[in-house]
Simulated scan of single mutants.
Amino acid sequence: MQGNTLDFGFPQLSEDPFSSNPLDKEEFDLLVGRHVMFEELERKITFKSADRILLVGEFGSGKTSFMQCLGTRTNLHLSVDRIAFSEPGVELMKDLYAQLIDGSPPHDYQKLSKDLRRMLHDSRQMLPLVTIDADMADVSSLEACLRSSLHFFERLPALIVLAINPQQQSLISEQLLQRFELRTMTSLDIDGIKALVERRISKASSQPYNMSTDDAKRLLQLSRSGQPSAVIKVLRDTVAGNYTPPTNVDEQPEAQIQEQSITELEADEESEELSLESDAEDILQEEPTKPSDSVEESWEPTPGMTEASGFDLDLEILDEPVDEQPDIQEVVAAAEGDQEFDDAYVTEDSLPFSG
């Protein structure tokens, strides 16, 4: 059952140990990467410290498995995995009631909440655990459920764990969220991935197996998110032999991505320099073809035209006699010959007397 497209050096396996289903209570030993938070909540159960926990994590981060395994630490675990659209708060309390007593729950809200508190208090050999898996719930229904049942939760002698995703968290009223203690399901680190693989391999093989740090880093890179479900999906495809290593940049090793980025940057700079040089050469080649005052035009001599004068001289025309034009003053005098006095030269004595 060993894959051929991606090799982590797995031993011979009797079955595929990488199930994507949430862990059962009997599979507590397969829960990895959550030991700090698990021990904290386990102490609350042990010391009967009632509290309300808001467990936030992406889909596939292991919220359901975590709550299932936490249920093994108490003698009473009530689990709710749906939020009703109609009267969600009342329906949630009816689900809890049905898990405690075989029979129809009371219709009166006050009596229903009072009976639940009494039953949970009477069974307090250990602190009861109430888990609400609302990851798939409608946000408006979830908020309505919290508004109607929060007062009941605050008076309930139990550890209440409400699991939602970050998108739901961003849409729920901050006033409601502040009534819970926030806990976040983070991605698995290298040690968490190694523990996940090694513990599951031990369930399907009698041969010892230790995952190398390099393989764990590679698996973390291929999973993209480091969430348990994403890691397990890569492992399942590997065991089935139908996983092909990705070729896009997002899934390449970090060092290779950095090296490729540097190479691409250098190539872009070189291409930009070549483009600038090419543009400069084009400009230099185009300039001689453009008319310019500083560039001398080519001279083609023609008869009667000299380079110094810049225009043609018709020597034959110059040899012909030229009729001299009469003087302008003579023309004017002839035109005004009929006048009584000659105003070609006017003096004071020649002006007519006006009394």
Rank of each mutant, 00 (worst) to 15 (best):
W299L: 04
L284E: 14
P291C: 01
D250A: 15
E269D: 10
L219E: 12
A308R: 08
T289M: 08
A230M: 03
S261Y: 10
P245G: 02
S298G: 09
M305R: 15
A280F: 13
A267F: 07
S278Y: 13
T263C: 05
E264A: 11
D279P: 02
T306W: 05
S294G: 07
L265F: 13
L235D: 00
R236A: 00
G310E: 02
A280W: 14
D293T: 09
E286T: 12
E281M: 12
I232M: 00
E264Y: 04
Q252A: 12
S278E: 14
P288H: 00
K290Q: 05
Q256C: 06
Q221K: 07
P228Y: 01
I262F: 10
Q256K: 15
Q258F: 12
E272H: 06
R236N: 00
Q256I: 14
V234T: 03
S292H: 09
S309H: 10
A280S: 11
V239R: 00
A240Y: 05
S309L: 15
D279E: 15
N248L: 03
E270S: 12
E270P: 04
L276M: 10
E259P: 03
S294R: 13
G304Y: 06
L235E: 00
T247Q: 12
Y243H: 02
S225F: 02
E264W: 03
E254L: 11
I232N: 01
Q252L: 13
P228N: 01
T238R: 02
D293Q: 07
R224W: 04
V295W: 02
P246F: 05
S261G: 06
P288Y: 00
D250Q: 14
S275N: 07
L274N: 10
V234S: 01
E269G: 06
Q256D: 15
T244N: 11
V249M: 14
V234Y: 01
G310R: 03
E296W: 06
A308P: 02
L284M: 03
Q258W: 09
K217T: 12
P253S: 10
F311D: 08
P288M: 02
Q227R: 12
D282Y: 09
Y243T: 01
Q221Y: 04
S229A: 09
G226Y: 00
D293F: 06
E307I: 11
E300H: 12
D312G: 06
A267T: 09
L276D: 05
W299Q: 03
Q221M: 07
P253C: 09
P245I: 12
K290N: 01
D215W: 07
D237Q: 13
D293K: 11
A230T: 02
A216D: 04
E273P: 02
S225V: 00
R218G: 07
V231F: 01
S294Y: 14
D250G: 10
S261I: 07
E251C: 10
K290M: 06
L265D: 13
N248M: 06
A308Q: 07
L265I: 06
S229K: 14
M305P: 03
Q256P: 07
T244D: 08
I283F: 06
N242E: 02
D215I: 09
V295Q: 03
Q256F: 13
G241P: 01
R218V: 08
L235Q: 00
V239I: 02
L235P: 00
S271F: 10
G304P: 05
Q258H: 14
P301I: 08
A280C: 08
